[in-house]
């Protein structure tokens, strides 16, 4: 892959539906975080939507709507509430994702808070500073985010940021400089 990623091609392939599970999950994690990817996906959805006119019409089995009703029996409509952005995952997975997202967000906040305190309280000579640039890059990224912004980012997005930062760190540790540089670069450019 070239260093300059073909965002439009990736978005097109995502909308076409030909990405494998891992690639698809990656795009879905990046989508809420990267404006250009999100816009490219929406543009491809618009371009290709007319094809759905030709989709067959098939009556669902009778009784299916009753199952829907049973599943939402305990839920008041949450549509109007400012819930997490729709990631369009099935509910089973959506709950998992949201749960995991919240957990990851807590972890991210804890880590970030730890760094902030560590920076404020300790003199400059921290243990890992000299060891590896990866740690420095990772810390630097979290250190630069401001706390007020955290509060405004939905948990799911924050979890995505956290995942991407960890991937960047892992890539760096594994010696994959290209990947690490690209990921850290992407994190830097993120606009919350």
């Amino acid at each position: 892959m070239t260093q300059e990623e073909d965002i439009d091609g990736l978005a097109g392939e995502y909308v076409l539906g030909c990405l494998d599970a891992a690639e698809r999950a990656d795009v879905e994690a990046r989508r809420p975080l990267e404006g250009s990817l999100k816009a490219a996906i929406e543009a491809w959805e618009r371009r290709l939507a007319p094809l759905l006119e030709a989709a067959p019409e098939v009556a669902p089995p009778p009784g299916l709507f009753d199952k829907v009703l049973a599943r939402i029996a305990d839920e008041p409509g949450r549509g109007a509430a400012p819930v997490l952005a729709l990631r369009s995952a099935p509910q089973r997975r959506m709950r998992l994702v949201v749960g995991a997202g919240a957990l990851a967000a807590c972890l991210a906040l804890a880590v970030a808070a730890w760094f902030l305190y560590a920076q404020a309280d300790k003199p400059k000579s921290t243990v890992h500073e000299a060891a590896m640039d990866c740690g420095g890059l990772y810390k630097n990224f979290w250190g630069k985010l401001d706390r007020e912004k955290y509060a405004r980012i939905p948990a799911e997005q924050l979890a995505g940021v956290s995942r991407m930062a960890l991937r960047a760190y892992d890539a760096c540790q594994a010696g994959d400089q290209l990947d690490a540089t690209s990921l850290f670069g992407r994190l830097e450019r993120m606009n919350f």
């Binding site: 199952k67 939402i72 509910q91």
Partner: peptide
């Protein structure tokens, strides 16, 4: 999946 779709509609129609 169709069930998921309409449960999703119920939960996210506001979006």
């Amino acid at each position: 999946v169709l069930e998921d779709v309409y449960v999703g509609v119920w939960q996210h129609a506001g979006e």
